[in-house]
Amino acid sequence: MLSVRGLTKWYGSSRVLDDVALDVHEGERVALLGDNGCGKSTLLQLVTGVLEAFEGTIQAPHAIGYAPEKPDMPDHLLAGEWLDLVSSLKRARWRDALIPSQLDVGSLLGRKIAALSLGQRQRVSLVSAFVGNPPLLVLDEPTNALDERSREAVIAHLRRSTALVATHDRDLAKRVATRVITMSSAQGMAEQAL
């Protein structure tokens, strides 16, 4: 499903990722744990194609459901407009995704994204990642700012998916992941027992 080999990424003169190798097979859910600034988000952005300049190879499916750490959506759009726009880009219907009702986005559709709280934005961002039920989900801190009910809905959905998840939330990793990988600036990546 996802294969990363010899991935190295520089930001100016600082090396954020050094010769990273990672595989995510179908049905697997890999949790990336690690300190701030160790390169988790950079790795996810490289996998999804958000960042381009790197050394190494990345083989990823064409359709990826990606939710960045900071929900990055145009503030001027209504939540419903954003979801329709994402549906147009993915040639799918957001209402057909498995999760919108559990995340209760129906009540947010007529509101401007600028007016939504952080948790509400996160819910809309997650639904837009799940639109079209993509074969691979790449989620960066997916439970940030979510209330308990939404968090449980996301966990339940993730358990049925193939996913690469960056998180600080050890409980989320424990409940969702089939493999946990810890990242650190000094020691690189290491697989950790569940």
Binding site: I64, G65, Y66, D72, P74, V86, L89
Partner: peptide, 9 residues
């Protein structure tokens, strides 16, 4: 602003 979504899709 939609860069991430446009790249991911």
């Amino acid at each position: 602003r939609m860069h991430a979504m446009l790249r991911a899709t």
